[in-house]
Lab assay of single mutants.
Amino acid sequence: TETRTFDSEEEAKKAQKEAEKQGRTVTITRRDDRWEVRFD
């Protein structure tokens, strides 16, 4: 599991799309003013 933090939802969604192309499961969580993206 890898976790990355982004400043914008746009960036988080971009990372999510990339990871899903690779067949990974992605979870996006809102953390205050940041977006946390978890790759499984």
Rank of each mutant, 00 (worst) to 15 (best):
Q22G: 08
T27E: 05
G23A: 03
E2I: 14
A19K: 02
T29A: 06
K14N: 12
K21F: 09
E11S: 06
Q16W: 08
D40G: 11
I28C: 07
E20K: 07
T1H: 13
D33H: 07
A19P: 01
A15N: 03
T1D: 11
E2K: 11
D33I: 03
E2H: 12
E11T: 03
T5P: 02
T29K: 07
T1N: 11
F6E: 00
R38M: 09
T25W: 06
I28M: 04
E9Y: 15
R31Y: 08
W35A: 01
V26H: 00
T29P: 00
E20G: 05
R34N: 07
I28P: 00
K17F: 13
R30K: 13
A19Q: 05
A19L: 15
Q22T: 10
V26L: 02
E2P: 07
T1F: 15
K17H: 12
D32W: 04
R24D: 06
E9I: 09
K13H: 09
K17R: 13
A15K: 03
K13V: 14
D40N: 11
D40R: 07
T5G: 03
T29V: 14
V37D: 01
A15F: 15
E11I: 03
E2W: 14
E11V: 03
D33R: 04
R30F: 15
W35K: 00
T27V: 11
T25L: 10
V26Q: 00
F39M: 12
V26P: 04
T1Q: 12
K13L: 15
R24A: 08
W35T: 01
E10T: 05
D32F: 08
I28F: 00
D7G: 09
T5F: 15
R31D: 04
S8P: 00
Q22Y: 09
R4Q: 11
D32N: 15
A12E: 00
W35N: 01
E9D: 03
W35E: 01
T5V: 15
D7I: 07
E20V: 09
E20S: 07
T1G: 12
A15Y: 15
D33T: 05
I28T: 02
K21R: 13
R34D: 05
K14C: 15
R31Q: 08
T3D: 04
T27R: 08
T5L: 15
G23T: 02
R31T: 08
A12N: 00
A15H: 09
F39Q: 05
T27P: 01
R34F: 13
R38I: 12
T27S: 10
E36G: 01
V26C: 15
R31V: 15
A12P: 00
K14P: 00
E11P: 01
D40H: 12
E9M: 06
E18D: 11
R4T: 08
D7L: 11
K21Y: 08
T5K: 05
T3Y: 13
E18N: 07
T27K: 07
R34L: 13
E36R: 02
E18F: 06
E10G: 06
R31E: 04
I28S: 01
Q22A: 13
E2L: 12
F6I: 01
R24I: 14
K17Y: 14
K21D: 13
K13D: 05
Q16L: 11
K21N: 12
T3L: 13
V26G: 08
A15T: 05
A15M: 10
T1C: 10
K14Q: 14
T1L: 12
D32K: 12
T5M: 15
T27M: 04
Q22C: 14
R4G: 04
Q22R: 10
T3Q: 07
T5R: 06
K17W: 14
D7F: 14
E18K: 06
A19D: 03
K17V: 14
T5S: 10
Q16R: 08
D40V: 14
E36H: 05
R4N: 05
E10F: 09
E20C: 10
V37W: 00
A19F: 13
E18G: 03
T3F: 14
R34S: 09
D40W: 11
A19W: 12
T5I: 15
T27H: 08
E36S: 02
A19N: 03
T1R: 10
A12G: 01
